[in-house]
């Protein structure tokens, strides 16, 4: 290879293509700004068009409404900008209740995941031997390789009140309902909580824990005064995942939620009947998430992502 290289240099075998390449290289070498632009241009454009574009379309649609129609059958868009859909969201208690229920579910799932993930991640990051640690990382992330529906229907057959595995083995099952939705969502998003926590614990110097005990703190006090404040950014980073994923989920309700409805279920139903209203309701979780991200920005959790 090394011997042949001399023969293959562009200088010795000029071709229009390599000349162009050289000119391009020279241009980019002299204009670092253009280089960066070319590198991020394509993905950036994609992001702008597909992501920002669809978001804008959603928000604009939310400001439209269905045209007035004496028969109640015609579904034509009235593109007058207005807040009628949002008025309806606020004035009709059911939409507030569903939104609050979704919010509550997101908070509950996040808390459950945090409580379970904290000791697991602590063990992984601070106690386990490197070998056990690797095994646990694999074990914790393994369910991510199975599909959402696969896991959902597996849980459905576990929870089935008409003779599912839980009923047969434990004699009791929460059946299909809100509790089961929470349970399965907490299961689904658990890796997204445990991994940021684990990496937080891994980065936390053991000497801090030793210093704390050395200065007279017992385990509980060390957890509260030293570990927890240090791990909060990781905890918040994990919660961004568990919270937003739950907030946007609706299909698990169809699989194990019984008659439970979240924002997504209503959006899905209204989508084909009253598109602007569905769009307006879909803006709600986005607003909640933006608010949440703004609120946690100061904790430094966003640097964890």
């Amino acid at each position: 290879m090394g011997r042949d290289q001399g023969k293959l240099t562009p200088a010795e075998s000029p071709s229009p293509r390599s000349g162009l390449r050289r000119r391009a290289s020279r241009f980019f070498a002299r204009h670092p700004g253009a280089r960066v632009g070319a590198q991020i241009g394509a993905p950036g454009g994609w992001l702008l068009v597909v992501y920002i574009g669809s978001l804008t379309a959603l928000i604009v649609t939310a400001l439209y409404r269905l045209a007035d129609d004496p028969t109640g059958l015609v579904t034509k868009l009235d593109t007058t900008i207005g807040f009628a859909n949002f008025d309806r969201l606020i004035s009709e208690p059911v939409y507030r209740n569903v939104a609050l229920r979704t919010l509550q579910a997101a908070a509950t799932v996040t808390i459950i995941d945090a409580i379970i993930a904290f000791p697991v991640a602590f063990f992984m990051g601070k106690v386990a031997t490197p070998r056990t640690r690797r095994a646990l990382v694999v074990a914790v992330t393994l369910p991510l390789w199975a599909g959402y529906l696969v896991k959902g229907y597996a849980w459905r057959s576990l929870l089935d009140p008409g003779g599912g595995a839980l009923k047969q083995v434990l004699g009791h099952t929460p059946g299909f309902g809100y509790a089961s939705s929470i349970l399965v969502l907490a299961y689904l998003w658990f890796p997204f909580m445990v991994i940021p926590l684990f990496s937080g614990f891994e980065r936390l110097p053991t000497s801090l824990l030793e210093a704390s005990t050395d200065l007279g703190a017992k385990a509980g006090r060390t957890m509260r005064s030293v570990v927890l404040p240090q791990i909060v950014p990781s905890l918040v980073a994990g919660s961004i995942f568990t919270f937003s994923l739950t907030l946007g989920d609706f299909y698990m309700n169809r699989i194990v939620g019984g008659t439970t409805e979240f924002i997504g279920n209503v959006v899905y139903r209204q989508f084909s009947v009253d598109l602007p209203f569905a769009a307006a309701y879909a803006v709600v979780p986005i607003v909640i998430m933006v608010g949440y991200l703004l609120a946690v920005r100061r904790t430094g959790a966003l640097d964890e992502l």
């Binding site: 110097p205 000497s207 801090l208 030793e210 210093a211 704390s212 050395d214 200065l215």
Partner: peptide, 11 residues
């Protein structure tokens, strides 16, 4: 006893 750590271990 108290310890001064190599990496200081300040909180």
């Amino acid at each position: 006893v108290n310890t001064v750590f190599q990496d200081y271990a300040l909180f």
